Simulated scan of single mutants.
Amino acid sequence: MPETAANAPETPGGTVTDIPAAALESVRDLTGVMITTGRLVLTAPSPADVDAIYRICQDPAIQRYTTVPSPYEYEHARDFVEKVVPVWAKEGSNAVFGFYHATSGQLLGMIGLHGISGPEAKNGAMAEIGYWTAPEARRQGYTVEAVRAICRWGFAQLGLERIEWIAFDGNEGSRAVAVKAGFTVEGKLRSRWVHRGERHDGWIGSLLPGDPIPR
């Protein structure tokens, strides 16, 4: 488990836990990472969040535009929290966080950098961002704030050279968040996915280390 710095460094996106040099090898343990912003705390979900995740993932928009199982059962939420996220963190393959209101502690959504690769990979250090937001937390800027913070962290702490945003064609909410966070929408991926038994187009965008990330 990475140690938490006694005086965590300040970054433009907030305060993050430091990652020891040993964890920056091709296999990096991301367990215990925390990112804070003005209104949010980003940290791995805990068993206390299972009920909320199960409830939120019943939302029709989340089931339509993400790859969560459908129907979404309670066991899916529990396995995600207790098995999937910890394994991903230990492997360093996916950095998944709940984003919580810094004052109330309410779970507002989930966000992650997925398919993390290092500089030794064929296409270098990259990841794909993904997120969903609880219906009651939408249109308040929380997701944009979380996206900006995790991208700054990914560039600064993981050395990423490109972060991709990919969404189903028609997911205007996700697109609006990505654009506000500084992503450039690059185009359409025709017939990119089979989702719920149907083939769908997608959108793709990117954020690079030199791109401005709005405040």
Rank of each mutant, 00 (worst) to 15 (best):
Q157I: 00
D59P: 07
G109F: 03
P69T: 08
S117W: 01
S26K: 01
M126R: 13
R152A: 00
G112N: 14
Y100G: 01
D49W: 13
A181Y: 06
R196L: 14
H114R: 05
D59F: 14
A95W: 09
P60K: 04
G182H: 01
M34Y: 02
E136W: 15
E136D: 15
G187P: 12
A178E: 04
V144Y: 11
I150T: 01
Y100F: 15
Q157T: 02
D29T: 01
P214W: 05
G109V: 01
E186I: 05
S206C: 14
R215F: 15
T37P: 01
N171P: 02
V84P: 00
L160N: 01
R39K: 11
E73H: 11
R190P: 08
G187A: 05
G182Y: 06
F168K: 08
M1C: 08
S104F: 14
F155D: 04
G154H: 09
T31H: 07
L189D: 00
H195E: 08
R139I: 08
G141H: 09
H200Q: 13
G159F: 12
V68G: 10
I62Y: 11
V50W: 02
E161C: 15
S174E: 07
A61W: 13
Q106E: 15
R39S: 08
A156K: 03
A6K: 03
E82I: 10
Q157F: 05
P71V: 06
L207C: 03
K180T: 08
L113R: 01
P69R: 08
W203P: 02
L189I: 04
